[in-house]
């Protein structure tokens, strides 16, 4: 993969707002466990907002690579790091919308499913629906 900064931002926001939301709804609407859990929507929001910043870092790191590429494996590592970052924040200083008592297990399950869905979509349906995006570093607009 050879994303550009603009491509990273556009893909991240689009995919989180679509498949990310689709994965989150069953959690937040209480279809999995009875009750309403807006905390999952907050998690989705933080992944998007912090991600805008992380993408700046990834784009900078990419410039040290001769091919200016970003292997899918790095995408996974970045995903793990972003999860740890959010987890540390809400467990230590706390994040609005996410209670410190939120179980790590549920957070991990929800986050992993979002990551998997976003990654899968970026490699499949995204290519089919936005066929020019792969020639433009992930930009679809």
């Amino acid at each position: 993969m050879t994303p550009t900064l603009l491509g990273r931002w556009q893909s991240r926001l689009l995919l989180l707002a679509t498949v990310g939301l689709l994965v989150t709804l069953p959690f937040s609407m209480g279809w999995i466990v009875l009750g309403s859990y807006p905390v999952f929507l907050w998690v989705l929001g933080y992944v998007a907002v912090f991600g805008i910043g992380w993408d700046l870092l990834y784009d900078y790191l990419q410039k040290f690579r001769w091919d200016r590429d970003w292997p899918a494996a790095f995408q996974l590592l970045a995903g793990i790091w972003e999860a740890i970052f959010i987890l540390l924040l809400f467990k230590t200083i706390g994040l609005p919308g996410i209670a410190r008592t939120t179980p790590i297990g549920w957070f991990a399950l929800h986050y992993s499913l979002i990551w998997l869905a976003v990654f899968t979509m970026s490699q499949t349906l995204m290519r089919v629906v936005f066929l020019r995006s792969r020639f433009r570093g992930g930009q679809w607009l």
Binding site: T2, K63, W66, R134, G137
Partner: peptide, 29 residues
């Protein structure tokens, strides 16, 4: 820029005939 292409036994290595970002990445733009 900040990057350098790898050399071993006087062969210069690159997966393809141009840096990867030339197709759809930063270098294309």
């Amino acid at each position: 820029g900040k990057a350098q292409r790898q050399v071993k036994h006087h062969y210069e290595f690159q997966p393809f005939n141009w840096p990867k970002a030339c197709w759809g990445g930063e270098f294309r733009a």
